[in-house]
Design a protein around this nucleic acid. Sequence first.
DNA 1: CGGCTTTGACCAGCGC
DNA 2: GCGCTGGTCAAAGCCG
Length: 196
Amino acid sequence: MENFSYNYSNPNPNNGDIYSSNFIDTPENFELSDTPENFELSGYYLFPEDGLSDEFLSQNEFVQSASDSRGSYSNIKPAPTTTHHNMQVKCTKGVMKKVDAKSRVAFRFRSELEVLDDGYKWRKYGKKMVKNSPNPRNYYKCSNGGCNVKKRVERDNEDSSYVITTYEGIHNHESPHVIHYTQFPPNNIALHNLHL
DNA sequence: CGGCTTTGACCAGCGC
DNA sequence: GCGCTGGTCAAAGCCG
């Protein structure tokens, strides 16, 4: 088993501004030149915030795609779920919560693994079958105390060889072992230690 | 025994 | 108002 290490992360975990110019320009600069052949990042999705045009929102609501290791753009798909407002209000057990929807980003990977080791420790808190998909959706929360980051993991219902991972929120702490990669920091997400 | 997963129940939002 | 759907809770079970 080969141990593959690769990271792209937010240099400042407390900076939730994922709409930096660095991010929007990233696909042209982004290279996965040292990734193994059987690992493919096919795209990622930013969730729109207030202030973006209606025209923009109508375009399946993705903002940018990432190139694969061969420099081509591939398999861009609409976000599995969307939120149109920067700030949502959720009511859970009678408690109203504001949710910062702008800090959501979804990745789509070709992977045989259901859950990739992204450097953070997650606690599973739910599993749900979703409509129009044969695959369950799994819900995770960051296990770090006081960190409210969540992620959803599900297999692409059109091609089950792909895994869609949606992150919501910004970690208020560092990953246990992050190596900063400054050219492609869509969120404070580190992908590393993939055992392929 | 503590931490994690499983899973059914519960709740809110939405469309009809 | 009602039913459907997605998201979350929390008790029970599992495991190291």
